[in-house]
Design a binder for these strands. Structure first.
Lengths: 204, 204, 204, 204
DNA sequence: TATGAATGAGATTTCATTCAT
DNA sequence: CATGAATGAAATCTCATTCAT
């Protein structure tokens, strides 16, 4: 009965609603099955466990997010190492747009991840994004230091913090501003603010 | 049986540890009692329910936090309305210090609140702080507008966001920097960064 | 595991015994499960909660009881409105038999309802039966008054009381007389007694 | 602190309210103490346990009730055995008045007993009254039979039932009619109804 | 007289998961 | 593919009662 992916789809939809409603921890697999018009056994045919079901919803968007960031850092190297590059003027327009677009294309998953993932393996997703960005930034900064021979000492706390600020700004916008265009405009202001006196902020 | 407030204290200590370990939702009253060497009934003699127990740990520090902020906004009015006041130069040194000191004086409660309160009535504490600060800021800005006759239009998203950024910076520092002095130094950098081009950021 | 409705049946039987033994309030779901040789979880697969389990035992008989009474009042209208009808001679033979038969066909449930339902949604079942009968009686009496143009004023207390008396007589018989035939014979005496000077009793 | 009976009184008042509100079973000694502004220890100084506390409220009225009935049956013997006594004309005016008066003089206790005593040792109070009345009636009837040489066979079910009916009528009136005078008037109608064809009803 | 602390057993309910069919 | 039944442990909370002080 019910062909192929129909059941799986119903489960995913029902799970989305339940996770959104109650959060990962308090979401009930029973309720998810009931609302999908399916028994628990069926759920366990498609998904290993609760964690696996959650991953089925948010996993792909998360992976893609990291891919976008990775790609950005890869490409960026050339630009940043060019002689006339000035951090304080870099508004990161391009990544900002790519990221915002990706997030708003996966709006449900994004909200789920950012507000309802406590108890799941994604509960620290924001920290993971921050850490990833931070380590990539440091790599980049070291390359710059090498090529340009600068020796200023980075204040690691402030670096971490500024990155946190930017990431939190994304979070805040996504969870408060449903309109993609406006979100993009505002995130640019954030980049402007943080990058404007980047040097003063992150170096001692 | 059991003299003074010994039992209550043991329960509070045990609860702190359990909440810290598992978070509000997953914390088990059974475990708390067991580790305190006490029966569940005893817990319910001292505390109404799980929420009340949690409140006994974090309630007072939270209330005091809001009192500090309120006092600041009350006193600040005079300063801000004085003719030679310049937002962009205000590093909020005093409040910063008071707040940081208060937080580090209640370190356990702070960590609990900021990282383990999901499911409790305090799960939105950060948002409450942001909202409080925002509404007070708007009041202040309106007074300035009145007295100085300026008419720039506030970008409410950005105002909210900048305040969020500052508050999140506090959160981040508290959860990552155990040393009070260093935390204070860094929070000042944050104020500098956000206030420096305050005008460009929060007005359209 | 466990075929057919075996487990559900065992639970119902065990529940009947427990409710009979301790009454609704003090009946323990634990005991019910234990005596049924089943875990508590199993109970909650079949029944929503304690109330639902109780309903599963007494619900149907109650509904049917009201249906029998409703049918009686519907059919009775013709008879009562016929010109040669005399209340004082009506011994309600037919309904009496139907009701007694229905009750004795559901003897366990009847005893449960009448003596062990305190705390459940059925604790006022007797009052509900009285109220139902009373309101139907008033409807009927108004129809008679219309058709026969009589105007005697009903003493509502006494009407209520007499109906209560009849209903309580049923209760008393069911709980004291296990033999259906004897119960029927006696209930007829009650009807005779109460109907005999009906007019003197319920009218001022 | 608090002299002598003050505390006891407060406990009794608080207990009355709690029992009335929740019934014997679900009444909480904790709540009773809390509302009396007293600790549990104090309660256990004055009362042995929950049952004892309940008895302190309803015990005396109950005992007095039985005394009134006993006195009635004692006095009645003479009258009933006089040659010109006719059951069917006895409306039991005197006892009725005494009983009704006693009940309405202890209204709170009466309501408690009749509607809230499930789980206590008084849960069968109505049955006890019926049984007492029944056995006394039989004694009396045997005396009559002896003195008058009559031999009609009593239908014990119907005797029990008619007494039940009368007692239930008292119960019903007390719980529905707060005015003593009206209650008395109505109870007289009940006696009239049941006594009117006493002979037909209780003899085969 | 009365307090305040503590017991310990009990209550109902929920849950993720398993598995024979 | 899917069902329906069952597990078993854990959850929070309430209660009458006791007793040293």
């Amino acid at each position: 009965m019910g062909n192929d992916k129909e059941t799986r789809d119903k489960l995913i939809q029902s799970a989305k609603a339940e996770f959104m409603d109650k959060g990962y921890n308090k979401a009930s697999l029973r309720s998810i099955c009931a609302n999908a018009g399916v028994t628990t056994g069926a759920l366990y045919f498609f998904f290993k466990d609760k964690a696996d079901l959650y991953k089925a919803i948010v996993g792909k968007p998360v992976d893609e997010l990291f891919e976008i960031m990775q790609a950005h850092f890869d490409e960026d190297d050339e630009i940043i190492l060019s002689p006339d590059y000035d951090v304080n003027d870099d508004d990161h327009s391009e990544v900002a747009q790519l990221l915002i677009h990706h997030i708003y294309s996966n709006y449900d998953a994004a909200i789920l991840l950012l507000t309802k993932s406590q108890g799941s393996e994604y509960e620290n997703i924001v920290d993971r994004i921050v850490d990833f960005t931070e380590s990539k930034s440091i790599e980049t900064m070291e390359k710059i230091a090498e090529s340009k021979g600068k020796k200023k000492k980075v204040n690691r706390y402030m670096l971490h913090l500024v990155i946190h600020v930017v990431v939190d700004s994304f979070v805040h916008l996504v969870t408060h501003e449903p309109d993609e265009k406006k979100a993009l405009a505002n995130i640019r202001k954030v980049f402007k603010m943080t990058m404007h006196n980047w040097t003063d902020t992150v170096f001692d």
